[in-house]
């Protein structure tokens, strides 16, 4: 009984894992490879780029993190372009041409995105002005009485 339990649990666990993972594994072996690139410099660029591309299926995940099949294919695409000697800019361009600016986690500053990039600074400026005016107004207020030091024993 005592020995059987962990065994049963292990079997159940393995079965569950097989059930959960079976399909993705079967699909992942379809037509592309995932794994470290032999050249460490290329691997570093690969990591950098895939963390800056948005997976279009699960839109809050990067291409690097997503389990979606499209993300795996885009990783394969990035890998091949790196091996073909493409520059980072060319790779980002390739993605942008097909999926639009949305695919880039760091969209370039242009007429459409200037508000997004500028908004934090604009709000900082507005907040600064508000604080400045409040502080200045208060510093001009007369002190109404001596500060209360409390009863002395």
């Amino acid at each position: 009984m005592r020995a059987a339990r962990p065994l049963a649990a292990a079997i159940a666990g393995a079965a569950l894992a097989a059930l959960l993972l079976g399909t993705p594994i079967a699909r992942a072996t379809g037509g592309y490879v995932d794994g470290e690139l032999a050249n460490p410099a290329l691997q570093a660029r690969y990591e950098h780029i895939t963390h800056r591309l948005r997976c279009l299926v699960c839109q809050n995940e990067t291409v690097a993190d997503s389990d979606a099949e499209l993300a795996a294919e885009l990783r394969a695409e990035v890998r091949q372009m790196l091996l073909a000697g493409k520059t980072d800019a060319q790779i980002y361009r390739f993605m942008k041409d097909r999926y639009g600016e949305f695919v880039l986690y760091d969209p370039p500053v242009d007429a459409k995105t200037v508000f997004i990039w500028g908004a934090p600074f604009a709000f900082l400026l507005i907040g600064g002005i508000v604080v400045y005016r409040i502080v200045r107004a208060r510093s001009k207020m007369p002190l109404d009485e001596e500060p209360d030091t409390g009863p002395t024993p």
């Binding site: 279009l56 099949e69 294919e73 394969a76 097909r98």
Partner: peptide, 14 residues
């Protein structure tokens, strides 16, 4: 399109 290369070129995401 077994490995999705053509779909990528067309910007297919779903």
């Amino acid at each position: 399109d077994q490995n999705g290369r053509v779909a990528i070129n067309w910007g297919v995401y779903g």
